[in-house]
Design a protein around this nucleic acid. Structure first.
Lengths: 199, 199
DNA sequence: ACTATTTTTGAACAGTGATTCATTATTCGT
DNA sequence: ACGAATAATGAATCACTGTTCAAAAATAGT
């Protein structure tokens, strides 16, 4: 028997993330992914069923990671609800900024996949969303969060805002200093834009 | 001489918006657009240079409309800054909900176009953004808005949130009652999620 | 009704790139 | 060192669809 040398499966995934982020899924060429991964075109089809499969695995991986991190966070009992919320923002923020190309891919392709491949979309996403909503609901119960906001709407509000800002940062990092973005996301989602110390 | 009958140019654009919204730009077939517009394939190329040109015209039209509406709003002197801000949200909200398929197309394709066709992207978008930022800056100067938030970041925050929510509404309207979404966008962007009447 | 002019048409073309698969290379156990 | 058995390869295939353009149809003026 012969063993597989190196880790082609991972090399291909990494190369695909870069190529998808750079060119967009449809303009990304399998041949380019193969080239960047240092692998033949045929090998890609040994490890992945087809082009869509590669994309799905990318989502599987990042949402899996986000879910597990959030799961650990939800379990902590040493944090107040606001601290937990801040920690969640930080966790999401760190995950995306450490994987900026993945962030771009998600920002570009997730909507389309959710809309037209809802069934084959990674279950980690739904689990992740469930945990996030749990934090907010608990915060409402403990009177830290406003009971009048719609949790589902808030979720889209926050993730939508996140997506635009992370993408902007990933594309032109200089215009969006990480700490400034992080601080503003936390502040705006908690306090909004109004000036509360009006004089 | 012969006159053109009907308004094929407009019919094609309307059909394209529906097909793009339904299938996504890449999976949208020119033949399907022709069929839905009640026009031959050849006619599409009489009125538009190519497939990309159709998409660009869609963006041109909606951002043009948004810009002109916001321009009129900025000129009004009978509104306080907060009222002006609310009116802006309402205007954007109304425009997108009245053109829900266009909203979906924008949500799906704008990022990609901005990233890879920045130069050929409608100038109305930049003008629109400029006006929006003007309102916020003026609000800060008049102490209605928090001077510590970054205007550019706030813009992405708000538009990103908008995009996700409008898309969600357009896809499953029942889960996102319009008035509830509108109220939550306004409230969250102004006050955030924290409970300010804590006891 | 006839001609000139413009509009419309859709079959055919052409470029593309994802995918296949017969062949080659590599590894391992004996 | 030899023969399985598995892994890797990439040229060739093939389906697909955006675009073209020569011909047909419609209109207007006379």
């Amino acid at each position: 028997m012969r063993k597989k040398e190196g880790n082609k499966e991972e090399d291909i995934l990494k190369a695909a993330i870069e190529v998808f982020a750079q060119a967009g899924f449809y303009d990304a060429k399998i041949s380019k992914i193969a080239e960047n991964a240092g692998v033949s075109i045929g090998s890609i089809y040994v490890y992945y069923k087809n082009k869509d499969d590669i994309l799905n695995k990318i989502f599987e991986k990042i949402w899996g990671s986000l879910f597990h991190n959030l799961d650990a966070l939800v379990a902590r009992s040493d944090l107040s609800m606001v601290e937990k919320y801040d920690a969640m923002i930080d966790m999401i923020f760190d995950t995306f900024t450490e994987n900026s190309s993945t962030a771009i891919v998600i920002a570009h392709e997730q909507q389309r996949l959710l809309l037209r491949n809802r069934d084959s979309f990674t279950e980690y996403y739904d689990k992740f969303v469930g945990l996030g909503e749990k934090i907010v609901r608990e915060g409402i119960k403990k009177k830290a969060f406003n009971p009048n906001i719609d949790v589902n709407i808030f979720r889209h509000f926050l993730l939508g805002a996140f997506r635009d800002l992370i993408t902007s940062w990933a594309v032109v990092p200089d215009e969006f200093p990480l700490n400034l973005v992080r601080r503003n996301i936390k502040f705006l989602s908690k306090y909004g834009i109004l000036n509360h110390n009006q004089e």
